[in-house]
Each structure stands twice: as structure tokens, then as C-alpha cells.
Lab assay of single mutants.
Amino acid sequence: ETEYTFDDKREADRAAKEAQNNGLRVHVTKDGNRWKVRID
């Protein structure tokens, strides 16, 4: 399990989409004014 934090939602969405394309499970959550992408 890996977690990334992004300031920009577009960057978070791009990272999530890339991980999904690689067959990974992805969870995107909002943390204040930042975005967390957790990859299982």
C-alpha cells in the first residue's frame, strides 16, 4: 500500500488513472485542501 499527496486534483486524478490502468486498486480522498491517492 502506497500513499501520495497532491495539491492539485488534476495531478491526483492522473496518478489514480495511471494506477488503475496498471490494474491496481486506487482510493482518492480529500484531506483539507490537498488530495491523497492510496494505492493497494
Rank of each mutant, 00 (worst) to 15 (best):
H27I: 14
K17R: 14
W35G: 03
L24M: 11
D31S: 08
D7K: 07
Y4F: 13
R10Y: 13
K36W: 03
T5E: 11
R10G: 14
W35P: 04
G23N: 05
W35L: 04
D40Q: 13
G23I: 01
I39T: 05
E3Y: 10
K17D: 09
D31G: 02
E1N: 11
T29I: 13
V26C: 03
I39C: 09
T29C: 14
K9S: 05
N22S: 11
Q20H: 11
R34G: 07
E11F: 05
T5Y: 15
Q20P: 01
F6W: 02
H27Q: 12
V28H: 00
T2H: 13
R38N: 09
D8K: 06
A15N: 03
A15R: 09
D40L: 15
V26T: 07
D40A: 12
R25Y: 06
D8M: 03
R34L: 06
A16H: 03
K30I: 06
V37M: 02
L24S: 07
A16I: 12
D13S: 07
V26I: 04
V26F: 02
K36T: 06
A15G: 01
R34Q: 11
T5N: 07
V28G: 00
G23L: 02
Q20N: 07
G32K: 05
A16R: 06
A12V: 03
D13G: 05
T2W: 15
D13W: 11
D13L: 15
K36D: 02
R38T: 14
Y4R: 09
A15S: 05
N21F: 07
E1Q: 12
D13A: 08
A16F: 06
N22E: 10
D40P: 04
I39R: 00
K9Q: 10
T29A: 07
I39D: 02
G32N: 05
R25H: 15
N33T: 05
A12K: 01
N33W: 03
A12E: 00
V37Y: 00
K36R: 12
R38S: 12
V26H: 01
K9T: 02
A19Q: 04
F6A: 02
G23T: 01
T5W: 15
E18D: 10
R25N: 11
R38H: 14
R10E: 15
K17A: 12
V37C: 05
T29R: 09
N33Q: 06
K9G: 05
V28K: 02
A12N: 00
R38G: 05
V26L: 01
V37P: 03
D7P: 06
D7Q: 08
A15F: 15
Y4P: 04
R38M: 13
H27F: 06
E11T: 08
G23A: 02
A19P: 02
L24F: 13
V37T: 02
K30H: 09
K30Y: 09
K36Y: 07
H27P: 00
R38W: 08
V26K: 00
E18M: 10
E11I: 05
H27V: 14
G23V: 01
D31I: 10
T5H: 11
V28C: 09
N21K: 14
V37I: 06
R34D: 06
D7G: 07
E3V: 11
E18R: 12
A15K: 12
N21Y: 06
N21P: 00
T5S: 09
T2G: 12
K17L: 12
V37R: 00
V26P: 04
